[in-house]
């Protein structure tokens, strides 16, 4: 494989890994605080629609981003209400949120735009544009093309997602808030005994999750593509969930997992590259299924056991 093809595949890996990474970090905050979230998919989808719709209507992508985050936060609020306030089943709540987003986005899109459940195409300032970093186009062999084609030329949300990895690590492992957040996912009773508000912490975690899913969804509709189409999250929320387990709920590992799954997605768009590399026909469907298969293998504990936060999924009932 020549350098140009390699750079193309890696470039699309980064672009496809970005929404996975944002959603994966979103899930990380929620699950570290003991709230399982299989509704990442729905939150992304809702955010994708509202960011696309508002960006189209106002012509300003930043307003679109805010609308996407607001939509995602609303669903987070429902999830928090169900799983924290009313101590309901977090998994069932997540399932409901996914369907709610799946149905509502199309119903509202039809009402607003009447284009078969999509928004009109976004042009100009309604989209995030690639940023050419300084010195791009520099003429040095190997390093020049890598810098220009791979590192430079992404939208701001890509760089934001990458920066959020060390930021999340710092927040979770180097601040008091992070320590408490992780503690509330392991042993909420102990946190409560220390006089810290379990409910507040869990709502904060669910809120952070909502914001990050909102950015992930906005990225889909306003950066990766130019507008919202029906079901455009296309299972990415579940791949992010898979990456989260793959990463064993740790930020840096999440980056690696999302890049790996992004690479698989990039390769399934380029079956010719896969055929050239392996010299036999790898079915595209196998590449599609590989993230899920890998997750099952990891979950089975054959390659190091993935142990979720201990209080995950359990509503906290304060002792009377």
């Amino acid at each position: 494989m020549d350098l140009e093809t390699l750079l193309q595949v890696l470039d699309s890996t980064i672009r496809l890994a970005t929404p996975l990474l944002l959603a994966c970090l979103a899930g990380l905050f929620s699950e570290r605080a003991g709230i399982f979230d299989i509704g990442l998919e729905g939150k992304m989808l809702a955010a994708a629609f509202f960011s696309g719709a508002v960006a189209y209507t106002t012509g300003t992508v930043w307003l679109g981003l805010l609308a996407g985050i607001a939509a995602s936060l609303t669903l987070s609020g429902i999830h928090g209400l169900a799983s924290i306030t009313f101590r309901g089943n977090q998994l069932i709540s997540g399932v409901a949120i996914n369907f709610l987003a799946s149905g509502m986005t199309v119903v509202i899109a039809e009402d607003w735009f009447r284009q078969g459940g999509r928004t009109p195409s976004l042009v100009g300032d309604a989209r995030f544009k690639p940023i050419e970093l300084p010195l791009s186009g520099i003429d040095i062999p190997l390093i020049g093309p890598i810098y220009t084609d791979l590192i430079s030329g992404h939208t701001i949300l890509v760089y934001l997602a990458l920066l959020l990895v060390p930021a999340s690590w710092w927040l979770l492992y180097r601040t008091r808030f992070g320590l408490r957040l992780r503690a509330v996912g392991e042993n909420p009773a102990a946190v409560d005994t220390a006089g810290i508000n379990v409910t507040g912490l869990r709502f904060a975690a669910v809120g952070i999750c909502g914001v990050l899913c909102g950015i992930a969804g906005a990225y889909l509709a306003t950066a990766l593509q130019a507008g919202f189409v029906k079901e455009m999250s296309a299972g990415r929320g579940f791949i992010a969930l898979a990456a989260l387990i793959f990463a064993k709920w740790r930020p840096w590992h999440a980056l690696v997992a999302c890049l790996l799954f992004g690479l698989l997605q990039a390769l399934s768009l380029r079956p010719d590259v896969v055929t050239a590399m392996t010299s036999f026909d790898v079915p595209v469907q196998l590449l599609d299924a590989l993230p899920y298969i890998l997750t099952v293998v990891i979950l089975a504990g054959f390659v190091g056991k993935a142990i979720p936060p201990r209080a995950g999924g359990e509503p906290y009932v304060k002792e009377q």
């Binding site: 309901g88 089943n89 709540s93 369907f99 149905g103």
Partner: peptide, 23 residues
């Protein structure tokens, strides 16, 4: 002008209220 996806919304709400928001 109601798309059939409204059914998915109803399905979601039924799951939400009979399942997660039971309490």
């Amino acid at each position: 002008s109601i798309p059939r996806d409204l059914i998915v919304v109803i399905q979601a709400l039924v799951i939400l209220f009979t399942g997660a928001l039971d309490n």
